[in-house]
Structure formats: structure tokens, C-alpha cells
Write a protein that binds this DNA or RNA. Structure first.
Length: 801
RNA sequence: GCGGGUAUGGCGGAAUUGGCAGACGCGUUAGAUUCAGGUUCUAAUGGUCGCAAGGCUGUGCAGGUUCAAGUCCUGUUACCCGCACCA
């Protein structure tokens, strides 16, 4: 009997489709399980072998949950707005909608050929007006609550894509997508106040089950630091406020630095004697791209302000003020107190400009280097703080200054507000109208969706405006409030918008009155298990958690967090151990593998390839082992015997394998689950036959991994019904125990014998049996027993001299 | 620089959390089947010494704790990922 995988897989995919086997039910009385994988961007390249790793893993979980009696929601959709499609459309003069449609068709047929148990009735597409209507709706709610606002700001401008990028999309000073240099440009942008949620985004990580490294990167990205805001005086009369995490070192502050963009520079223009040099420096740093700034990071630059000096509030000493681009306007107050004795950057700067360095915490040598590792030190040269620990000093000085109205405790976050505008065509239009009299006026909700207009050219304009800006018919409208001539917003939303709430739409994808019904959301949310790539652990996860919390606050959803559990899979690398890419020529196409080995083999191999959470190189020869395993499984039909109970010889092994596979799936250890089934198969082969009861269990265990083959075998064995209609097998803990167990006997830690004993025997019996072994006696001969260690069920160690 | 991770045979990787290192698979070798290639089956397979019984050695490196360490502690090296002048 040949294993004709192509015929088998086609046959069962058609049956599943026709019978709608994997549709989630709307019967809300059943226990639910919501398994989710990140929906793909339907690129022109088609599916990558990395996609099935994640999809198969949760497919296994979903299929197992169905067999366990859950109402399972395992949906799929398309995150289809985005630049590559738009760029392709521009280049080839094809409408992006058409490009998207074609790519989706290709992706969908590829996913179907993998036998993934998605509920295709709930397929969604972020570019569908029925979908983005609700993306726009959420934006309007954010706007109404003051969380969306417009701001003139210096933004990251990609010279290649001619588009504004979020900080997160700038990698090493170049555009994440196209690699062109990124420079600063001042533009009026829509912003979302994610910073308002910073603390809750940290705190609520305690409510969810994410793998640790994901939580850690979320916390690091938000970057909370506690310290104090301290008001320094100036000879100009203004107070200059700084943020510091080390108020204890205030006596060591020998100068101040403000950012080149700091507003006080203009304010003090009349007082500053070297304004030419200051302006030259300002221009120089504005011209620098982020890339140049970081390149030059080692060498500190700056200009001293002649004519204005700062006054240290702890001792009223006058200190110089510099401008330097190592101080960022976008963090804290844009001004710092510099403590060269205990901060590396300040130390470098002080050395270069010949500024005094004062030691205020004992323990280092501040002439040699900044002493920064000083949290446990003792204060010196610090007036009222002398002799205190750093901890005590921090508290005391802030209290002392606060009494005088010069300081207050303060928490800062690295997280910045989210730049939400893109000057592009292929994105959700922002539903706002600008009126000269009324300002920014939201579109009435009844007018949603605000559809993308048809345009002839998708090219961004040279001045950086969106292609939509050229569509005067579309742009020029009447103000909804006062009726005066007004203009539509021509920017579109970033790609992250549609993916920030898509998991909600799956709950009720065809709803025309709301993003999803209250009942559906209450039943399905939160997502029980969400798997995706490590590359999305900061941005997508943070953005979607932020939106979800906002929707929670306005009563749309009933859970504070969207995902109860989050895991991440490792990348699949090329055969040479490098990341797969066209330029490296090491790309494996899943279509080829399915054609040559079948979907079941591909699924099994991707799960067997290694630790699910780690990167693993592709191996064309290892895949054969998985094919061989499935062929051997198929061959078991030839030795199938009657028998409705496990045979005595295999009973223990079956119970153990059920336990192992059940547990391993939950722990993401698919590789060892497969290894256990391989071992079981080896035992069955040695035994020579398999009976009905055993075959049923084996097919059920293997079904989530190799669904087509197991359905086919179930049918050929005439077991009745389909595997998907059965119950997940159970095991008996008692039956997993062997009557006889092997015990290792060591003498002085070296293995001397292995003995078989009854599982229930006592420690004394074990010890006696161990000592009776000839090789043990030989090793003990003439020696004095010092110590005897007995580990029940495992080993005996006799220490002798 | 900061944060996170990894290091085990020729290769991918196991190891019930301190108790038999190398499960399972690939590859390799030998034998059987075959006209042959492929397939399949049987056996062997960390290194090393030995005819053998058996011994020695072995989880990046150096120490330590322990009857017992891949696993715990101290130090160290290499590589990967993320962030990067965040005061």
C-alpha cells in the first residue's frame, strides 16, 4: 500500500471544507478556547516556511482542544495595508486592491494546502471597508477622549519611501523597510497618547501569562525610571528644571546641559553673548540624521552659553550651562544637571571641556573614570548628606528641596507617543476634517467607513504630502459643524492600526452595527493563547494592548488585557544557519516541500525540527525521517488486529505516551511529543502487531500533527465517523508505572551495576539487592562502607574507603 | 555600554529540574533484500586504550559546593537577538 499523500491530503481538505468541520460555534453555553496566530501580511513572495511553524503549533493546540470538547475559535485573516503592496502597485501600475486580492488568494490556497484547521467563515481583511470602518471608529473614540491629537514635531523622515516613520521603524538610523537614510523633518502629525497608559501597560503584565523575555522587553521598551524633578536657578532669573534619577549626587553637579532644541535658548537670546556659535551648533545638530548622531556618539560636542549661568539649589553655587546634542529634548525636561564624577557621559564631556569633577560617593577614583556602580556607597563632599548611604541621601535631599519648593519626586518613561500619520495612499483614511473656524472636526460615525478614493497615481508628493492631497474633489468638503469650506485629513493610518484590534473582529466578523457584539466579546475574549514572532514583542503587542485597554475603559470590551497567554516561536533559518533571504539564495518554498513530501510531513518536520522557541536551521535530509515515520505508521494498517482493549504487552507504553504527548503539547514541546510517538511506533514494530484500541489511540495522538493521514487511516480501518469527532485519549497514572524498575548501583559515584527490582520495594530491600550484585561486591571488597545513599526508584550509591 | 539568550556526538536536538549524559531523528559503517540505483529490513555508532572482559575520558573554558553537577555557586570566553547619549 503506497502512501499517496497527495491524493489523501486533497481528499480530506475537500471533506473538511464541504462539511465546515472547523467552524467555531455560536453556542455560548459551551466552554470556549480562543487560539490565535499573528495574521500575515500577504506579500508578493507567498508563504515562507517560517509561517507554518507558528500556524501548525497552534493548529495542534486547536485540534487537541476540539477533541477535548471545547468550542474552538482558530481564525485567520490578512494584515493587508502596507508599503510593499503600494510600492508594487506604483511600479507595475496595478491598483493595490488588485495586488492585495491576488496575494491573498495565493496565501489562502497555500494555507489550505497545509491542512490548517482555520475557521475560514471568519476570515478578515484589514483593507476591507467593512473592517476598516471600525479601525476608523476606534480612532474617532480616541480623538473624542483626547488621546489622538495633532502636533508639529520633528519626525523621522525616510528619504526613500518619502514617508514619516515611527521611532520604532527606524533601525540604526535607516528605514526599517527600504534601508534609506532617515532624517528629521518638522511636520504636523497625528499622535496617539500611548504614554498615558505607560504605567498600566507595565502593571498589567502581572495579570497575564507571557513568556518572561516578552515581559522583560515590554518593560524595557516602556522604560520606567523613578527620580526627581529639580528646579535649578539661573542668572537670567528663570528656573531651569531637570530630571534626575540620582538627586543624591546634586552636590556633584558642576555644570548643566540643555538640548539644542531647548526653548530657553530663544528666550535667552538677548543675554547669550555667543549666540552665533550657539545657532551654528543648533543648525548642525538639526541637520544630522539619527544615524550620524549615533555614529558620532563616542565624541561629545557642545557649546557653552556665555552670559547665563545655572544656580545649584543645594548650595547656591553658580555653574556653567552648555548646549549639547547628547541631551534629548524628547526625554525628561530636555535639560540635565551634569555629575561627571558619577555619570560616564558627563565625565566624558567634563574631560573634554576641562570642567571640575567632584566625588560625592566614596569608593571609586573619579579622576580615572566615572564611578557609576555606587548604589551602595557612602556620601562625601555633600553638605547635609555627608555620611549617609545613597539610598538615604536620595530620600533626604528630595524632601529637603521639596520643603523649599524646589523639587518633587517624578517618574519618567522612555516610551513616547505614537506617531500615527503616514503620507501614503494604501492605509485607512483618518476620518477628520479640518476647518479654519472649528479646527479638527471628527467625521460623524454614520459616515463611516470613509473609503479610500480612487486615484490615478499613488506616488507620494515631493513635499511629503499624501497622494490623497492631490484629490481636490475628495479633499474639499464642507465643515460638518459650521458648513464653511474645509479640508479632509489626507494622511492615512500606519500599518499597525488594523492589527491593533483584529482579534476582536474575529469574534463576530460580519457585524454591521458594532466592531463585534457584546455577547461575542464577552464569550470569546480574552484570547487564550497567542503565538507570534519575537519581532512583534515590543511594537504590535504594545500597541494592541494599548488599544485594548482604551476599549476596556470606554466599555467596549470586558477584559483589561487582550491576550491571556503569549508565546513566541524561533525563526527557521536556511540550511547554512543564516536567515533565509533571496539574496543569500537559501530560501525554501513550502509549496515545493508539500509537493515532494506532503503537508503532513512538512507539519511534522517543522514541529520536530527543535525547540519551538529557538531558531533552527532547515535540513533537507532530516525531513526524510519524518516522511519515513508517517510511511511506517501507514504500514500499521497491514498488521491491524481486532481487540477493544490495549494488549498486555503495550498497555503501559500507551498510557505513558498519552501522558507524554498530552503534556508536551501544552508545554510547547512538540519535538519530544513526536519523539515519544516514534518510540511507541518502534515498540509496536517490535511487538509485531497493533489492535483496534491501540490504533485508535495512536491515530488520535497523531491527528493534530498529521491530520490528513490519520483521518484516512481511521476511515480505512472502518472505525466509523471522523477523527475530528472523537475524544482525546485519557491515561491512567497507575498504568504508567512499571512493575519492575531498573536501579543504578554506584560505588563512590561510579556505576558498577544495574539491577531490576520490584517497583514497590523498600529502601532496605533495595540496598540489600544492590550489595548482592557481584560487581558491587567486588568493588567493595576490603573497604569500609562510609555512607549509603538510596534514591527510591532511581539509584543506590555506596561510599566506601 | 545596557537588557535578554545560547554553548551537549559528524548534524538537529533529548535529559522527569541535583541522580544512568547523548532519548528521538538525520548521517555514517557493516550485513540482508535488489540486475542496479532508490526503497525496506537487521546490527553498530561520543572519544580513547584493549583480542576481550573491562578501563579511562567526556556537556565552551577555569575553579568551587556535593555521596553525586550538563543542571547549583564564582570567575571567564565566544556567538546570537533587542535597545542604544533615556540623565
Amino acid at each position: 500500500m503506497k502512501y499517496d499523500f497527495a491524493a489523501i491530503e486533497k481528499k480530506w481538505q475537500d471533506i473538511w471544507d464541504a462539511r465546515n468541520v472547523f467552524a467555531a460555534s455560536d453556542d455560548y453555553s459551551k466552554p470556549k478556547y480562543y487560539a490565535l496566530v499573528e495574521f500575515p501580511y500577504p506579500s508578493g513572495q507567498g508563504l515562507h516556511v517560517g509561517h507554518p511553524r507558528s500556524y501548525t503549533a497552534l493548529d495542534i493546540v486547536a485540534r487537541k482542544r476540539r477533541l477535548q470538547g471545547y468550542n474552538v475559535l482558530y481564525p485567520m485573516g490578512w494584515d493587508a495595508f502596507g508599503l510593499p503592496t503600494e510600492n508594487y502597485a506604483i511600479k507595475n501600475h496595478i491598483h493595490p486592491e488588485k495586488v492585495t486580492h491576488d496575494n491573498v488568494q495565493r496565501f489562502k490556497s497555500q494555507l489550505k494546502s497545509l491542512g490548517l484547521s482555520f475557521d475560514w467563515n471568519r476570515e478578515i481583511n484589514t483593507t476591507d471597508p467593512d473592517y476598516y470602518r471600525w479601525t476608523q471608529w476606534i480612532f474617532l473614540q480616541l480623538f473624542k477622549k483626547g488621546l489622538a491629537y495633532k502636533k508639529e514635531m520633528s519626525v523621522n523622515w525616510c528619504t526613500g519611501c518619502k514617508v514619516v516613520l515611527a521611532n520604532e521603524e527606524v533601525v540604526n538610523g535607516v528605514c526599517e523597510r527600504c534601508g534609506s537614510p532617515v532624517v528629521h523633518k518638522v511636520k504636523s502629525q497625528w499622535m496617539l497618547k500611548i504614554t498615558e497608559y505607560a504605567q498600566r501597560l507595565i502593571d498589567d503584565l502581572d495579570l497575564v501569562d507571557y513568556i518572561d523575555r516578552v515581559k522583560v522587553s515590554q518593560r524595557n521598551w516602556i522604560g520606567r525610571s523613578t527620580g526627581a524633578q529639580v528646579d535649578f536657578g539661573t542668572t537670567a532669573g528663570d528656573k531651569l528644571t531637570v530630571f534626575t534619577t540620582r538627586p543624591d549626587t546634586l552636590y556633584g553637579a558642576t555644570y548643566m546641559v540643555i538640548s539644542p532644541e531647548h526653548p530657553y535658548i530663544e528666550k535667552w537670546a538677548g543675554l547669550i553673548q555667543n549666540m552665533d556659535a550657539v545657532r551654528a551648533y543648533q543648525e548642525e545638530s538639526a541637520r544630522k540624521s539619527d544615524f550620524e548622531r549615533t555614529e558620532l556618539a563616542k565624541d561629545k560636542t557642545g557649546v557653552k552659553l556665555e552670559g547665563v549661568r545655572g544656580i545649584n539649589p543645594v548650595n547656591d553655587e553658580e555653574i556653567p550651562i552648555f548646549i549639547s546634542d547628547y541631551v534629548l529634548m524628547s526625554y525628561g525636561t530636555g535639560a540635565i544637571m551634569a555629575v561627571p564624577g558619577h555619570d560616564t557621559r558627563d565625565w566624558d564631556f567634563a574631560k573634554k571641556f576641562g570642567l571640575p569633577i567632584i566625588e560625592v560617593v566614596k569608593g571609586g577614583n573619579v579622576e580615572e573614570a566615572a564611578f557609576t556602580d555606587c548604589e551602595t556607597g557612602v556620601m562625601v563632599n555633600s553638605g547635609i548628606l555627608d555620611g549617609l548611604s545613597v539610598e538615604e541621601a536620595k530620600k533626604k535631599i528630595v524632601e529637603w528641596l521639596a520643603e523649599r519648593g524646589k523639587a518633587e519626586p517624578k517618574v519618567n518613561y522612555k516610551l513616547r507617543d505614537w506617531v500615527f500619520s503616514r503620507q501614503r495612499y494604501w492605509g485607512e483614511p483618518i476620518p477628520i476634517i479640518h476647518c479654519d473656524h472649528c479646527g479638527y472636526v471628527p467625521l460623524d460615525e454614520s459616515e463611516l467607513p470613509l473609503r479610500l478614493p480612487e486615484v490615478d497615481s499613488y506616488e507620494p508628493t515631493d513635499n511629503g504630502d499624501s497622494p490623497l492631497a492631490a484629490m481636490t474633489d475628495w479633499v474639499n468638503v464642507k465643515c460638518p459643524k459650521c458648513g464653511a469650506p474645509a479640508k479632509r485629513e489626507t494622511d492615512t493610518m500606519p500599518q499597525w492600526a488594523g492589527s491593533s484590534w483584529y482579534f476582536l473582529r474575529y469574534c463576530d466578523p460580519h457585524n454591521q452595527d458594532a466592531l463585534a457584539s457584546k455577547e461575542a466579546l464577552n464569550y470569546w475574549m480574552p484570547v487564550d493563547w497567542y503565538n507570534g514572532g519575537m519581532e512583534h514583542t515590543t511594537l504590535h503587542l504594545l500597541y494592541s494592548r494599548f488599544w485594548h485597554k482604551f476599549l476596556y475603559d470606554i466599555g467596549v470590551v470586558n477584559t483589561p488585557e487582550p491576550y491571556a497567554k503569549r508565546t513566541s516561536h524561533g525563526m527557521i533559518l536556511g540550511e547554512n544557519g543564516e536567515k533565509m533571504s533571496k539574496s543569500r539564495g537559501n530560501v525554501v518554498n513550502p509549496d515545493d516541500i508539500i509537493r515532494e513530501y506532503g503537508a503532513d510531513t512538512l507539519r511534522l518536520y517543522e514541529m520536530f525540527i527543535g525547540d519551538f522557541e529557538k531558531a533552527a536551521p532547515w535540513s533537507q535530509s532530516s525531513i526524510k525521517g519524518c516522511k519515513r515515520f508517517l510511511e511506517r505508521i501507514y504500514g500499521l494498517l497491514e498488521v491491524l488486529q481486532p481487540g477493544e482493549a490495549y494488549s498486555e504487552a503495550l498497555e503501559g507504553s500507551f498510557h505513558k505516551t498519552v501522558r507524554k504527548v498530552s503534556g508536551d503539547i501544552e508545554a510547547l514541546k512538540f519535538n519530544t511529543a513526536i519523539a515519544a510517538m516514534m518510540s511507541l511506533l518502534n515498540e509496536i514494530s517490535d511487538h509485531g502487531s497493533i489492535n483496534h484500541a491501540e490504533m485508535k489511540t495512536l491515530l488520535l495522538l497523531l491527528n493534530p500533527f498529521a491530520p490528513h493521514l490519520t483521518e484516512e487511516m481511521w476511515e480505512q480501518a472502518k472505525f466509523g465517523g471522523m477523527v475530528t469527532e472523537q475524544k482525546w485519549p485519557s491515561y491512567d497514572e497507575e498504568k504508567c508505572k512499571d512493575a519492575q524498575i531498573e536501579i543504578v548501583v554506584q560505588v563512590c559515584g561510579k556505576i558498577k551495576a544495574r539491577i531490576m527490582v520490584d517497583a514497590g520495594c523498600s529502601e532496605q530491600e533495595l540496598l540489600d539487592a544492590a550489595k548482592a550484585a557481584p560487581s558491587v561486591q567486588a568493588a567493595l571488597n576490603g573497604k569500609q562502607i562510609v555512607k549509603e545513599i538510596v534514591v527510591k526508584g532511581k539509584l543506590v550509591n555506596i561510599v566506601a574507603k
